[in-house]
């Protein structure tokens, strides 16, 4: 696979997503967006659905974006981005990059239909899901991307039911099933991996999907300074796998530490205990989640082997 590694040291100085935005202190999505814009440059058009980024990136008349910016509604990021791209093409501005920046709720749930349609049509856009594992803009409600056991305001740690009862929806695999040119997972805590994938996705044609793990300290009940530390732990424990799927081939880019039996070496408990949203979990629940992570890791490995 062709890949020119892009590191922090390759990034330009200028911010195309400026300070003054109103994200919570320690916001993972803000880290992603600010640096992604350095990769994309000025010849870019941005669409955001209704999400935290819509609000913290611009409240009329002040806006952090320094490139064309558009919003229509919540569930149509993929199709509005595609509409922009097609219209740019129709007006001879085909060289511009169009990026849709949606959250996990706007992608895994309400935006899934438009996303699937745009992917199937292989629309020439870059779709980035910043995954903070719940509806944060409305105040921390569960989404399809919320992990098992997590507290949210709609999966409270009640007397009978404690946290979310279902597992995280695997959107990247759904996107791979669409047979699009590029699908990748990334994390704010792995800058070189993230920037390299952003650069690659920027330069490709057709539908590109990137899902970036983006800590939400407010919603996860994590001190803001731990934003990056938590994100690292997610990869180390196998809760989040960094891989990419390019033209039919899948590669796991960062392999977590394994024990002598080939199992994940760092227990998921190490990840859970950093976050208030998992505080209520029982040993049985943690065991259930550990089992799920083990199986997911094996499946990721098997998929990598199968997709060569």
């Amino acid at each position: 696979m062709s890949s020119t590694k892009i590191t922090i040291h390759d990034l330009p100085k200028e911010n195309l997503f400026t300070g003054g935005h109103t994200a919570c202190p320690g916001c993972g999505a803000a880290i992603l967006v600010r640096n992604a814009m350095k990769v994309f440059g000025k010849n870019t058009v941005i669409y955001t659905p209704a999400n935290c980024l819509l609000v913290f990136g611009g409240t009329y008349p002040n806006i952090s974006w320094k490139v064309p910016y558009h919003h229509v509604a919540f569930e149509n990021t993929a199709v509005c981005s595609a509409g922009i791209k097609r219209a740019l093409k129709a007006s001879g501005k085909d060289d511009a990059l169009v990026v849709g920046f949606a959250g996990d709720g706007g992608t895994a749930d309400i935006g899934m239909q438009a996303l699937s349609g745009a992917a199937e049509r292989n629309e020439d856009i870059l779709y980035i899901m910043y995954d903070n594992e719940a509806y944060m803009n409305t105040g921390i409600q569960r989404s399809g991307s919320t992990p098992y056991g997590a507290w949210t305001t709609t999966t409270p740690a009640g007397k009978v039911i404690k946290g979310k009862e279902r597992f995280k929806k695997d959107v990247p695999q759904i996107m791979i099933a669409h047979n699009v040119p590029y699908v990748a997972t990334a994390s704010i805590a792995y800058p070189t991996d993230l920037l390299t994938k952003l650069e690659k996705a920027k330069n490709m044609k057709g539908f590109r999907y990137l899902q970036v793990y983006s800590t939400c300290p407010t919603g996860w009940r994590v001190p803001p300074e731990k934003t990056v530390e938590v994100a690292k732990k997610a990869v180390e424990t196998g809760m989040w796998t960094l891989y990419e799927y390019e033209n039919g081939k899948m590669t796991i880019n960062v392999k977590p530490k394994l024990d002598e039996n080939g199992n994940l070496a760092v227990p998921v408990r190490d990840y859970l205990k950093m976050q208030g949203r998992f505080r209520h979990m029982t040993d049985a629940q943690i065991e259930t989640l550990q089992k799920w992570v083990n199986e997911k890791w094996k499946r990721d490995l098997a998929l990598e082997k199968a997709l060569q």
């Binding site: 409240t59 806006i63 910016y69 511009a96």
Partner: peptide, 15 residues
């Protein structure tokens, strides 16, 4: 219009 050579914001969150 949403042109990179003359950028505009259209549909901004408004109080």
């Amino acid at each position: 219009h949403l042109w990179p050579d003359d950028p505009m914001a259209i549909g901004v969150f408004s109080p």
